[in-house]
Amino acid sequence: MSGTSRSYLGKGPTFTVNIAYTVWWNLLLITVGGFIATIGIKSIAVPHELVPGGIFGLSSLLYYTTGKLNPGWINLLLNIPLFLFAWFKVSRRFFLYSLYATLITTLFYEFISISIPIQNQLYAAVASGVVTGFGAGIVLRSLGSNGGLDVVAVYLFQRFNMGIGRVYLVFNTLLYFGSLMRLQLDVIIASLIMVFITGMIIDQTLSLFSQRKVVFIISNFANEISNDILTQLKQSATFLKGFGAYSRKEKNVLMTVVNNVQLKKLEEITFTHDDEALFIVENTFSVTGSSFSRRKIY
């Protein structure tokens, strides 16, 4: 997650505060994201008896089956062993933020009621997936999680780089197979659609504002282009040694990383110097270090 840094100068030494690691910013992300996710579940999914993803999905299934408590309180109880896992396997800060996320979501679910009159079950599945995924993704941009399966997903992502959306998809597939005896097949299929969309939106929300373009430029004017990158774009660049297969001559390959706004300017710089340059662009969703985002530490 990228964060904004502020530098403070005083009589003492200079120090930098990264907003992404401040308490107020993380609580804001968790509160806003938890509210949005609650609307997606309570106002859209539950009226159609759709089963949301993760532990909350299991909670909803238990609620549909027993009619006891409500999914919010069942979810809180099921989270207890996962909170212990977060305390020992991730970090205490992650545990506290995740605990806050679960508590605030439970309170939102208990006291907030917003009617969204969607009649079609398929439309409800799509809408719930988008809204819930966006809310859950906002929470995951903090240093905490939504609790539940997020705790395990974040741990697997941190240790094995396993995508959070993918972890949800595997768990929920097993959950829906287990619910075949209780729910109609149409409801299960609609729930799978909802969860698939939720996972996609979570991943997109996590990459929001972090998308970058890796650009490789092969040109006989690489030095001139690199100078303009440094002065006009205020970005760094790296020379890679290349060897032409046809010319059998060494040449510099220029590599740099820019955002979407800077890309067109870089293209203009390149072809202004050399209209025969080779301009190669690749999408990347994770650029950490230097002037880009800091490595996220839970």
Rank of each mutant, 00 (worst) to 15 (best):
S2R: 12
S5D: 10
S7T: 11
G10T: 08
T16P: 01
T16K: 11
V17R: 13
N18K: 14
T31I: 05
I41N: 01
I44P: 03
I44Y: 07
A45M: 12
L50E: 06
P52V: 09
S59Y: 05
Y64I: 00
T66C: 06
K68R: 08
P81L: 07
F85R: 06
W87N: 04
F88A: 02
R92Q: 15
F94P: 05
L99I: 09
L107R: 01
E110N: 14
S115I: 08
L122D: 04
L122T: 14
V126A: 10
T132M: 09
F134R: 03
A136T: 11
G137S: 05
L140P: 00
S142C: 04
V152E: 03
A153H: 03
Q158M: 14
L174S: 08
Y176H: 07
L180T: 13
R182M: 15
S191Y: 07
T198Q: 09
M200P: 00
S207V: 15
V214S: 14
F216P: 07
F216Q: 12
S219C: 03
N223M: 10
I225K: 01
N227C: 08
L230C: 03
K234G: 03
A237H: 04
K241H: 12
F243Y: 15
Y246L: 06
L254V: 06
M255W: 01
M255E: 01
V261I: 15
T272V: 12
I280G: 05
S286C: 08
R295K: 10
